[in-house]
Amino acid sequence: MTRAANGLAAKAAIPTADSDKGTTADARRKVISAARPRNMLLRGLSAQDFALIRPRLERSTLQAKDVLEEVNGPVEYAYFPEDSLISVIATQRDGKAIEVGMVGREGMTGTAIVLGNGEALNECRVQLEGSALRIPAAGLRELLSRSASLHAQFLRYMQVVLVQATQTALVNSHLTVEKRLARWLLMMHDRVGENEFDLTHEFLAAMLGVRRPGVTVALHMLEGRHLIRSTRSHIGIRDRAGLEEFVASGYGIPEEHYRRLFPGAGF
């Protein structure tokens, strides 16, 4: 199991609008800007709640394939991605696995902390490298008990996480691999905000629960419809509206609920 902590200190000292010029490097490591946070869930917090959580946050660099939570393992940190992307993966003991959710700049990991229990319910694995803010589980738990509004905000996000899982269950039984792939690319696009991704077919196959050659075929078909551009381990979105039209009702329900529950987040 790899952890995302390597190299953290080096990357964490991001100059911020309000960082005190005189603080030591070690203290500054933890200073997160009081300006508009890049993570939308944090951005949606009240000024008071953000002031409460901000001093406990530290910036961390996540590498692709880092495992942040293991099923039934302890949850050490909750992560708020800034431009990284994390997969929530249901895993059976025999190794069968499928992605049931995706967390990017709109969300957070650490479901088990917010819902109260200590053990991870699903696996969380980094999909796209990038930065995230994180808070230790104990610190978050303490804040949740101190601020009812903070807890309420994060609980509402868990409702979106649950809806993501139910929609995934639905599309897994009703959509073709090609449509599921298109849905997946749209969801990723929403959560990262970039048009180009470095992704291997092997990784996509694991996320969608199909064999790798099937991903190659599905990518080829989407490319034939001029919706994406795909080369070895690289995918670019060419026509977002076209992708949405193609997946139709298979995409968008968790996103709709997110916007309803967090109107101020800018998602």
């Binding site: 049931v100 479901t111 819902l115 319910l121 699903n122 649950l162 629960g209």
Partner: peptide
């Protein structure tokens, strides 16, 4: 009651898993 929400979340995750696999 949140403990039950977690149990239901796990049930749903497994449904997503079996529907695909």
């Amino acid at each position: 009651l949140l403990r039950y929400v977690q149990a239901l979340f796990i049930q749903t995750s497994y449904t997503a898993l079996v529907n695909a696999r």
